[in-house]
Amino acid sequence: MKYVDEFRDNYKCEALLWQIGKLSHMIGRPLKIMEVCGGHTHSIFKYGIEEILPNTIELIHGPGCPVCVMPKGRLDDVISIAENSNVILTTFGDAMRVPGSKNSLLQARAKGADIRMVYSPLDCLQIAKDNPDKEVVFFCIGFETTAPSTALTILQAAAEHIPNFSMFCNHVLVIPALKALLNNPDLQLDGFIGPGHVSMVIGTQPYEFIPQKYHKPVVVSGFEPVDILQSIWMLLWQFLEKRCEVENQYNRLVTETGNHQALEAINRVFEVRETFEWRGLGEIPHSGLKIRSEYDQFDAEQKFTIPYFTVADHKACQCGEILKGVLKPWECKVFGTACTPENPIGACMVSSEGACAAYYKYGRLSQIRNADRSIPEKLIK
């Protein structure tokens, strides 16, 4: 099967792991590499990649899970919209269980709010047509990956003159988040595994500031085991050769300049907010999108009275430090005890892309804590 089986091939993985072990021995110092995307975190634990790497390579799990970075206040805001009797709220399934300050969308639905899961924002247009006496609101979240589909949905709603449809926009941008991380003195990183899905939209060019200003190499990666191991191998070569560049491992889908049609749709419908709050990272300037005034009729923030709650995270939850890569999930005091996927205290435990959820499902913590992860001598000769 082209582009799937080839990237899960055991022989290729073993060859790459052998090379990684050899290169890490030649470099001779510990390395901290952040995978920005939550999809990479999920793959790393699903395939046990972190466990087989040399103990000199530490993977840091970044804030690339859009559900995880959603602040409690915005969840409370969208629940307040859903509680209107004339509203049908729609959203993706992974947003349903994210905890706000009092409850989640799933709990609000159990109390009587009309909240529906959809697979595409375009599904909401049909719901609006079928329910002309209701206001249909789509709770849109995500990085640049999902922004084109919501932009095109608004353009379609405008073309079809659907007056009872709007969006509560919470799209965020990856580049400002990376800048905030790099400016954090607590975080010491050597390089980045760049996000694959976001890069399909924006390309590799926007990451050039990382090697130029912060002197950290970046390799944009796919999501299969061979992709991730090859990306780590490419980063190690940069460390060894004292290079600092943006490289593209995921070149079967990612280009230097991105998807021009997708970017055009985003720029036509959205503009950048002055600031936006991220869970665990706080306010980050120019890091969120809002709907342009030309499309105010489809902006839920213009249609409804939004309370704009500001809510602190649970005191026992350390999602913020985990999202910044300062702590590992199992270092949080409530991980796996009070906080589980069935009863999540923090957002990192909700989404399948969240670091805590990945650790809980795939982490095999006793093995990670106790195993000798050093590379056998025969691999470095």
Rank of each mutant, 00 (worst) to 15 (best):
Y360R: 11
I306L: 07
G64P: 12
G142R: 10
L182C: 11
V78I: 15
I52M: 06
G203L: 08
M200F: 05
A300S: 15
L235P: 03
L235K: 00
E353M: 13
K32T: 14
F223K: 05
V137F: 05
L17V: 06
S80C: 05
M26V: 10
K102C: 13
K46N: 11
C169N: 13
P206A: 02
P344A: 07
A158I: 00
I115T: 02
G142C: 12
G346P: 11
V269G: 09
I81E: 11
C319M: 07
M34H: 01
Q107S: 12
F239H: 12
P376W: 00
S351A: 12
F239I: 04
F92H: 09
I266V: 10
L59N: 03
R29A: 15
I291P: 10
S231A: 14
A158N: 08
P217S: 05
T310V: 08
K72E: 08
V174Y: 01
A316W: 01
I380D: 04
V78F: 04
K381M: 07
Q230T: 05
A108C: 10
I175P: 06
C339Q: 01
R273A: 14
R273K: 15
L173N: 06
A157S: 08
M200Y: 02
A265S: 12
W278Y: 14
R109T: 03
D190Y: 02
K12G: 04
V98H: 01
Q367V: 11
N164T: 04
G354P: 08
P63S: 06
N370H: 12
F298Y: 14
P185R: 07
K381P: 01
I210N: 00
S24P: 06
L23H: 12
A113N: 02
E321C: 02
L235D: 01
P206Q: 00
V172W: 01
R369A: 06
E208W: 00
R8Q: 14
Y308C: 14
C317T: 09
Q238W: 01
Q302M: 07
P148F: 11
E377I: 07
P54S: 11
Q212K: 12
V174E: 05
T145D: 10
N251M: 06
L365D: 00
H61W: 07
C319S: 07
K22D: 09
V201W: 02
L105S: 12
I210F: 00
T257D: 11
V201L: 09
D227C: 08
I127F: 12
I79Q: 01
K179T: 06
T305D: 14
P285V: 07
F143Q: 10
G258V: 06
K324P: 02
I49A: 06
S352L: 07
K333L: 13
L178E: 03
W278D: 13
C244H: 04
C348M: 06
E321G: 00
P217H: 00
M26S: 05
S101A: 15
E83R: 13
V36Q: 02
